[in-house]
Structure formats: C-alpha cells, structure tokens
Amino acid sequence: MKHIYDMIIIGGGPAGYTAALYSSRAGFDTLVLERMSVGGQMTLTDVIDNYPGFPQGVDGFTLSMNMQQGAERFGATTMYDEVVSVDLNSEVKEIETAMSGTLYARTVVIASGANPRELGLVNEQELLGSGIHYCAHCDGRFYKDKVAVVVGGGNSAVSDALYLSHLCKKVYLVHRRDVLKATKIYHDPVMKAENIEFCYNCVVSKVESDNGKVSSVSLIDVKTNEKREISCDGVFISIGRKPATDFLNDQLELDRNGYIVADESTKTSIDGVFAVGDVRTKVLRQVVTAVSDGAVAAHFAEEYLSQ
C-alpha cells in the first residue's frame, strides 16, 4: 500500500524545517526532502548576525542542524533525495524522486530556495572552478596575492570584495549601476580598503582564458560604451539568486523573475500547495522571514487538511 504523507516539504532550509516543526508538532505525518544537506544557503554563510536569539551570532551550519533536530523531535523525518518532477494537480500529490521512487502527500510545501545567478557568458560553465566562482568564502584562498574581479553591487558582492581584499593583491568591484545596492553597514569598510577599485556603470562582456584558466575580463561602460580590459586571475560572480523551480514544470504560477507567486499566506495557485522562503515572491529574503513563512504554511496546511 502506498504511504500518503500529510505533508511533504521540498527543501531542508530554515523555511522547510520550520514548516516541518509546526506540522509535526501539530501531529501531522511530515517528511522533509533534501537534495544535499540541511540548511540550504545558510550553510554558505560564515556567521549569521541577524537571526535573533544569538547575541554572538551563530554559524549557519549549527543553526541548520538545530532546526532539523527541533523538527525531528516531534516526529518529522528527513529523506536525502532530489526531486525530479511533481504532479500537484490531483488531491493526492505525487513527487518523483531521483532514488526513492514516487512519494505521495496531501499537502506540499515548496521550500527549494535559490541558487547563485549566472552571468550568462558563453564560457562560464567551462571556466567554473578554474577562475569563475560563486563562493568567495570557499574559493578566495586560492587567490592569495592574486588579482580578483567581483561582479555585483549588493550585500553579498560587497562582502565578497571585502573578504577578498584581505587575501588578494587587488580586487576590482564591477557594478552595473553608479551606486552600490548594498546596505550602509558595508559601505565604510569597502570604501576604506586600499586595494579595492570600483568599476561603476560597467558590465562584463567577456572573460578570456589562457590554458584553461581565467586571464582577463572585458568590461563595457553602459553609459559611454567605452571598453576596458582588466587582467585578473579570478572572477567572483555575486549578482543575486535564481529560484530553484525547474522541477515544477510550470504547474505553479511564477513571477517574471521565476519566483513562485504566493502572498503572505504562502498559498500558491494550487490548493494544498504552499511556497515558503526564498523561492516565494517577497520583499525581504532572510532566515527570519523564511522561518516565518514556514510557520504560516503549516497553519494553512492544517486548515486545508482538516477540511
């Protein structure tokens, strides 16, 4: 006989495990499907300073483990598997996994998060890991005393540039606007760093490689059309995130940036299907707003299940 869960949560980040905590604590049979390891993007952050309750900050890995244990205490289980496709339209929803076959649930919470957005250069994939990187904290150390280019102007780009400035000989920060998007707290230290050069109003048109390794980037000034080439060893791309929705296969309404359309109720265009955390359209993507989504989704799922 097929097992039908009350709730299957796709993605084991903060939003997913909060939904799991609320749902299992309310007595529902709850499963979290995680493709890799719990925590999602939280584990890529060194210290999280803006999640309340931790006066000294907390590392993303510890917080992830704690959230998982909190949900498992009430009976939620975790399965490590990747979702290949879903069929959300029937009353019992079907989730096709890479290794564990088809799973069934009455409600589904999409908590699949987001991945780094790519620049879209022709040789981006080819140079991935040999000069093109998305995680400065992971790969920055391979560029000690070298020249790095950071692309982006938001919080993570600026904090990447700052981190790299301590390691690299020189860091260029390439941003397509004339002013940084990053919040004020980052501005002072990055302006004071002597080895960071700002390239405002510029976009990367090309990355050149030599012997399979990055050798330079070509920039175009979007205001003057002027071209410029910078010799460098590494390019760190930090231009935002791309929601992980490929497995949905157009079954849910997405906004023009690919985020699942759902208001603060987390209800999607299909009854019994909820979207939480970074994958949902929202103003502020933070751990604290993700956990809030998880709780709200469990509330409305409970309402749906008791109908």
Binding site: S37, A98, L128, G129, K213, G234
Partner: peptide, 27 residues
C-alpha cells in the same frame, strides 16, 4: 589543479575519469 572546493575526482587505474566542482547530491 584544484581551484575551487569541494572538488570531487574519480580515478580509475591511476587516471582521472571525472572531476567535478561544487557540492552535488548523492545521485
């Protein structure tokens, strides 16, 4: 030639068969 971590390498008979950068699911 590891410039990015994690890097996963598969060797057979001492030869590199595949090299892959970044975290990957088990499958």
């Amino acid at each position: 030639g590891v410039m990015s971590i994690p890097t996963l390498v598969v060797l057979r008979n001492g030869e590199v068969v595949t090299k892959s950068m970044g975290a990957k699911p088990k499958a």
